[in-house]
Design a protein around this nucleic acid. Structure first.
Lengths: 319, 319
DNA sequence: ATAGGTCTTTGACTTTTGTCAGCGTTCGTG
DNA sequence: CACGAACGCTGACAAAAGTCAAAGACCTAT
């Protein structure tokens, strides 16, 4: 521990735990108050000092309760689109990050998937000093048409949480099923994929199956392939893999060429947190919920309304 | 949820999560900034906003490492007596409370014993919003020569943590062994005592066996009885029960008349946190450690030195 | 040894936050 | 229905915290 870290810890302790004023802390430690202010800011940034707010505000809502009952979900958080936020679009990741942090227990192993949403979340994730937490990458890597790759998501979240980040050093999609199968059986990879079963929590969003969806933009699939999948019954994308409208793994060339977490294993993880930003992902979200991929859900108010209407109208059984 | 609570939550969210200034929050919510300040203070007091500081400062110390190794403890926190604190005597409970909070996981069941130390700790325990935590009372109740009874400790800690507090509605000591035995077998009591085995964490201090010790002052034992116990091999007191110098339950009239947690069960609890304030409790602490009652220890610097010297000189085997 | 870089520290200044008396509103009670 | 108590809100002032340029410390490579 560097001596400056030591001072930072002491300052943080005296200020936040003892409730001293900055000038009092300064006097105690014999340095100027300006320095104390700097140390305190750093302590907050690094996560030595943790300021967290209950996300109850977003969960405490009749609509949330109704959704939980209707869709058999553990907890639902609803983000209002109207007032309350400076930038309504930026609110969702902030809420999701806070919820995510609240769901983590010390010592947990956490699976993190990939996508625009997950990256946004990582981007606003508060710094914290969680002990013994491990963040594992759920799906293989992919080149970067945007500036965020799967491993970067894992790494960034791990960094902010002061947790260990475990990356999956394999491509998300391979050119042949044979190669994918062989790679999955490589001890290193197989072991890591199997270890996903030990997770207590997973974080993901669901992907759409439009021709401009994430998988297509990243080059994992051509627009034509995606369209064919759509016609072949694809309903959404979870951790890089295509599911049908009932949330079942779709037996298609893409999926067979994919290196990613086993969807059946994912379903057995106790807390499955899904975040959906875009209203356009309604159908994929329905598929994911039906498939049992969701236990904790963060959605917009309008999405919540649509989900509830859908379930009340048709029930969970019909597609 | 009251409407004012709703506002408080919103204010806390905008201020702490979005980092808005108080006047910006005030503008958003259309109330005066002064009110915002009030709401924020309440939110902190109630535990909606949680500000916690890592206790690493006290654990990050060569002496602490040495003690852990020598005494086979999980973690040791050392409270310096000299500088750093406004009031050195008040530092110990504050550190202990922070450590305690850090050891708690969501959903935990926590056993809390009784004593001056535990009460001090409860007194400075920060407010927090832990979910699903249960605080159970480890030992029976006793009249109040001081103004804190066992059940008050449990209740207060539970209140501050927003946790459920479960009290043990039985006296700590009864006048006859027969009655104690019968009472222990009462379904309500037996069930509760058995449920202590489900705890993930216990908090206690160790009592001395002097004639002015806690048990004596509370009237549970006469000075003469205590002296007799001392001559009969008593080494300390854990959760109201007397242990010998090796940390074994002492087969004595007092213990047989006692309604309290089974010491053998306590030893099986994963995290056993002991806090010792007074330097005079050296011998009892040694007994408690030998008995396996301690996995996490908070002590003063001088006590740490004495413990280390004792272990280096004689090893754990000799008394 | 010293020049050049980075990282700390500080004092002075600005901005933000805490506080409190007084006013208004609501709600329970006689 | 009127009264008082309790609570919430506000404006104005006092206190505390944030910021920044400049000075100083410290390291390193020539």
């Amino acid at each position: 521990m560097r001596s400056t870290d030591q001072i930072m810890h002491k300052a943080a302790w005296l200020y936040y735990m003892h409730g001293l004023r900055q000038d009092e802390v300064a006097k105690q430690l014999n340095i100027s108050r300006a320095s104390i202010a700097t140390y305190l800011r750093r302590a907050r940034e690094i996560g030595i000092v943790n300021i967290s707010t209950s996300t109850q505000l977003f969960s405490d809502d009749v609509l949330a309760r109704k959704l939980e009952d209707a869709l058999s979900l553990e907890t639902v958080w609803i983000v209002p689109e109207d007032r309350l936020a400076i930038d309504p679009a930026a609110e969702m990741p902030v809420v999701a990050a806070a919820v995510f942090l609240e769901l983590i227990n010390k010592g947990d192993r956490i699976g993190v998937a990939w996508g625009r949403t997950v990256y946004h979340l990582a981007d606003v994730m508060p710094y914290a000093d969680l002990q013994g937490v491990t963040v594992v990458q759920l799906c293989g890597n992919l080149g970067a048409p945007y500036n965020y790759r799967p491993d970067q998501c894992t790494t960034e979240i791990g960094r902010r949480l002061n947790a260990e980040g475990i990356n999956l050093y394999a491509p998300l999609v391979l050119s042949s099923e044979r190669l994918a199968s062989d790679l999955r059986n490589e001890p290193v990879i197989r072991e890591q994929l199997a270890s996903i079963a030990d997770c207590q929590l997973v974080l993901y969003s669901v992907g759409g199956i439009e021709s401009d969806s994430h998988l297509v933009r990243c080059g994992a699939l051509t627009p034509e392939e995606m369209q064919a999948l759509g016609e072949g019954g694809a309903g959404g994308v979870i951790a890089g893999q295509v599911i049908d409208h009932e949330g079942r793994w779709l037996d298609c060339p893409h999926n067979r060429r994919c290196i990613s977490a086993d969807l059946e294993i994912i379903k057995t993880i106790p807390k499955r947190m899904m975040v959906v930003e875009e209203d356009s992902k309604f159908q994929p979200l329905v598929a994911a919920i039906k498939g049992g991929f969701v236990s904790h859900l963060v959605v917009t108010h309008s999405m919540a309304m649509r989900l509830l209407a859908r379930w009340e109208a048709e029930g969970p059984q019909r597609s």
